[in-house]
Design a protein around this nucleic acid. Structure first.
Length: 820
RNA sequence: GCCCAGGUGGUGGAAUGGUAUACACGAAGGACUUAAAAUCCUUUGGCAGUAAUGCCUUGCGGGUUCGAGUCCCGCCCUGGGCACCA
């Protein structure tokens, strides 16, 4: 009897079934091959799930379900990255403890995620704010400290005056706070730092061994910014001072005519001490610093400098170089001091502005152009320019001259090879309440006795976790101290080493801390002795497929690779698994509002997934999000498009309600199309072409519907293929076909290579590459037969009459082209 | 400025160098209905033509090829990332 398609009924039914039967539980003891697929766990915000969330979750859910049907033991876990500012800000407003809010939000998220039928293993849920979890986040920090990778340093940080929080470089977008959009200021603060720079080379080199999309690799490589060059040794004339200057393009070194130093550089004071330059230079430095602090500094417009009165003593036998303080020099890249030449655009402009000497060591081949460059009328640097000096290398191209000149510089003793990186050590302190406490204690006595050089003592591992105490007020202070600093009973403790009075670190960790390693905890979420059991790690690692947002490429993804490499080095994860956590990384595109703009509350264009589920069902939402467009691309939401997908599901549903008969025999064309569809869907899921996979299912469905008769093979194949995209309706139809177990226990459909081709095909007849006719022929037609048929076509005849055929191109089963 | 994607109907988009516009949305017409919704059928890149049919069409300009949305060269535009890194 024909039943109506009622998504709310069947979806509730199957969600209950899966929960009761633990259909998605991953087993740690299995002979099956394992497959670990991972999505970025959500931050449980008060707004609840957004339609953007299900896009990647559905994509990997499809993969997870397919792998189960292919016989894998699949781990597809979910958790919550629950530390973070929104909960804390809400607490400030309402006085409700962040843990209370977090609990409530997680309940909402859980309900919503379950309503979408994702095949997550709900027995392995983790939450980063759980002390049993952050115990291990703190443990990792302690290991970093013990291995010299965590250190406290006073440094200029990016300070958001609104959030009252220090930000990592990665969290500053266009000089503004990533979260609230307030202009970021510079502030001097003592901060815990992690030495990610020590891993810079490995983070680049090991990319060769992982399957990440090229754009992710390139973005990480550019972010790390490895640069090779020369450190030149320099002496200051008339002063007992030496320093080095870094140059990544040393082949024009003989064009260097002056030296610039960053205003913040400590050496500046020594250069000017006691000279008539002291006062004006100090004033200059103060001015530039204050403008930089306010973040009102536009480099192109403000090339400013002042002479220090000092010179570099004749570095290359061609004379002394005046030393200037210049606004455009970075203090924290290279050595903070740079030799300048006419072949750097900024140096050129700076020299013009202050009338400094310039010299040419590279010329273009074009004569007129060369004259222009010689006369210093124009800046010049190009790989095909010709070296003029040193004379030994005159005539070499600029790019070819690099290595020989570097060797020359080394042999002369002017300098030595050096490497620099754009990436900086990672600022790991936040002056906030709702984060993992940094498990460190400061002890004056230990510093005085020399028991600790810095006075910083790690909390003993047995005392972990250092739990967040309850607070009355969550507001951070303007002084930049965390709200924790106000709780003296928590702050003031006895030193774990000497028992003297000591105080706890009151900074907390950034919200990246908990997400660095969460994928390890899923493997063994309740372990109390280790961050995860080594045997289980050995079974489940490496993560086979990790999908996430492009916006995390230089944040979470890079951080977690770094942390994993560290854990690998200290043998906290199995050596046999290698130094990379994720074998494959892909990324999804954003879902935009209907107009193509970002979805946001203020624009009022946010689509609530609950409403879509209520009106059309979870299967429709899932299928629509896969069908809407290429997975990696940002796509606007289209409510009409959702309806189209719903119509498709109903069409399939009706087919199985007796609208199409299942008989022993059906048309050969339908069998062929079914094989083609199995192949297409099988392949497209692997290449993440979900939109074309869905369209292939629609084509097959349309065909079945037209034919009115299908056989068991076709009926089973369509349900199985559909079931990974739309699991509820998939299970329901599977049951209607007489099956008792979940469709995930059934095998993924196989196609027969021999049955992919149609017996008959449309042969395209071209004349000079233009389509003139099309005839239905046997697919195995020979060239001779095809040519004969082509020449008989009336439509073709018109074009070849009285012409000589000089060539024939034949593509079997597809096309014949007559060239006249 | 540098690096990475991309530019195809009214819209989202599809196309191993081989029928451009699959699939879906929207629109128009029709059937059913007292009516509407839902559903079903037909049409739907442009121009000319009653039609058969012909010509044109994948941002622009060249090139390679029997044949180019696809490959090469030079531009233009859009999106994303980086940006005082010497």
């Amino acid at each position: 009897m024909a039943k109506k398609y009622e998504p709310s009924k069947i979806e509730a039914k199957w969600q209950k079934f899966w929960e009761k039967n633990k259909t998605f539980a991953a087993s740690d003891k299995q002979r099956k091959p394992k497959f670990y697929c991972l999505i970025e766990f959500p931050y449980p915000s008060g707004e609840g799930l957004h339609v953007g969330h299900p896009r990647p979750y559905t994509a990997l859910d499809i993969l997870a379900r397919k792998r189960r049907m292919q016989g894998y033991n699949v781990l597809y876990p979910i958790g919550f990255d629950a530390f973070g500012l929104p909960s804390e800000n809400y607490a400030i407003k309402t006085g409700i403890h962040p843990s209370v809010i977090t609990k409530k939000n997680i309940a909402t998220f859980t309900k919503q995620l379950k309503s979408l039928g994702f095949s997550f293993d709900w027995d392995r849920v983790i939450t980063t704010t759980d002390p049993a979890y952050y115990k291990w986040t703190q443990w990792i920090f302690l290991q970093m400290f013990k291995n010299g990778l965590a250190y406290k340093a006073k440094m200029t940080i990016n300070w958001c005056p609104s959030c009252k929080i220090g930000l990592a470089n990665e969290e500053v977008i266009d000089g503004k706070c990533e979260r609230c959009g307030t202009s970021v200021e510079k502030k001097e603060k003592e901060q815990w730092m992690l030495k990610i720079t020590k891993y810079a080379d490995r983070l680049i080199n090991d990319l060769a061994d992982v399957d990440y999309s090229e754009k992710i690799k390139i973005q990480q490589i550019n972010w790390i910014g490895r640069s090779e060059g020369i450190n030149f040794k320099e002496k200051v004339k008339d002063l007992d001072l030496e320093f080095e200057v870094y140059d990544s393009i040393p082949q024009t070194f003989l064009a260097q005519t002056f030296t610039v130093i960053a205003p913040e550089h400590p050496l500046v004071q020594k250069l000017i001490a006691g000279t008539k330059y002291e006062t004006p230079v100090k004033e200059f430095v103060a001015r530039i610093k204050s403008r930089k602090a306010a973040n009102r500094f536009v480099i192109e417009k403000e090339l400013e400098g002042i002479f220090t009165g000092r010179y570099v003593a004749n570095p290359f036998g061609t004379g002394d170089l005046p030393i200037w303080v210049a606004s455009y020099v970075l203090a924290d890249y290279g050595t903070g001091i740079v030799n300048c030449s006419a072949h750097d655009e900024r140096d050129f402009a700076f020299a013009k502005k202050y009338d400094l000497p310039l010299k040419i060591a590279l010329l273009p081949t074009d004569k007129d152009h060369a004259e222009k460059v010689k006369s210093l009328a124009e800046f010049y640097r190009a790989p095909d320019g010709v070296i003029q000096e040193p004379l030994e290398f005159k005539g070499l191209r600029w790019d070819e001259a690099r290595e020989p000149i570097i060797k020359y510089i080394e042999s002369k003793g002017y300098g030595r090879r050096a490497v620099n990186y754009k990436i900086r050590d990672w600022v790991f302190s936040r002056q906030r309440y709702w984060g993992e406490p940094i498990p460190m204690v400061y002890c004056e006595n230990c510093k005085a006795t020399g028991a600790s050089a810095t006075g910083w003592i790690p909390v003993p591992e047995n005392d972990l976790p250092v739990q967040l105490p309850n607070v009355e007020k969550y507001e951070p202070s303007d002084s930049g101290e965390s709200p924790l600093a106000a709780i003296s009973a928590w702050v003031n403790i006895k030193c774990p080493v000497c028992n003297a009075k000591a105080r706890r670190e009151t900074d907390t960790m950034p919200n990246w801390a908990g997400s660095n390693w969460y994928f390890l905890r899923y493997i063994d979420p309740k372990n109390r002795k280790h961050l995860a059991d080594p045997k289980k790690l050995g079974y489940w690692l490496t993560v086979d497929w990790y999908n996430g947002g492009m916006e995390h490429t230089t944040l979470h993804l890079l951080y977690s690779r770094f942390v994993y490499k560290f854990l690998y080095d200290i043998k906290a994860v199995p050596k046999a698994k290698g130094p990379e956590p994720y074998a494959k990384r892909t990324s999804h595109g954003l879902i935009l509002g209907a107009g193509g703009e970002k979805m946001s509350k203020s624009r009022g264009n946010v689509v609530n997934p609950d409403e879509v589920v209520k009106a059309q069902g979870a299967d429709t939402l899932r299928l629509y999000e896969m069908f809407m467009g290429p997975f990696e691309q940002a796509i606007p939401w289209d409510a009409q498009g959702v309806m189209g997908v719903r119509r498709f599901i109903e069409k399939v549903w009706n087919i199985y309600q007796g609208q199409v008969k299942i008989e022993k025999k059906c048309s050969e064309a339908l069998i062929t199309l079914t094989h083609q569809t199995i192949k297409k869907v099988t392949d497209d899921i692997e290449s993440q072409d979900y939109n074309t996979a869905v369209s292939a299912l629609m084509i097959l469905t349309n065909k079945i519907s037209d034919e009115k008769i299908m056989n068991k093979f076709v009926a089973v194949a369509l349900v199985k293929l559909l079931a990974v995209f739309a699991p509820h309706v998939g299970e329901e139809l599977w049951q209607m076909l007489g099956n008792k177990k979940s469709i995930l226990a059934a095998a993924w459909p196989e196609y027969d290579e021999a049955k992919l081709l149609n017996k008959n095909t449309n042969l395209v007849i071209q004349v000079n590459g233009k389509v003139r006719d099309m005839i239905l022929v046997r697919a195995d037609l020979t060239e001779q037969e095809a040519e004969k048929l082509a020449k008989q076509s009336e439509k073709v005849l018109k074009f070849i009459e009285n012409k000589k055929i000089v060539n024939t191109i034949f593509v079997p089963g597809k096309l014949i082209n007559l060239v006249i």
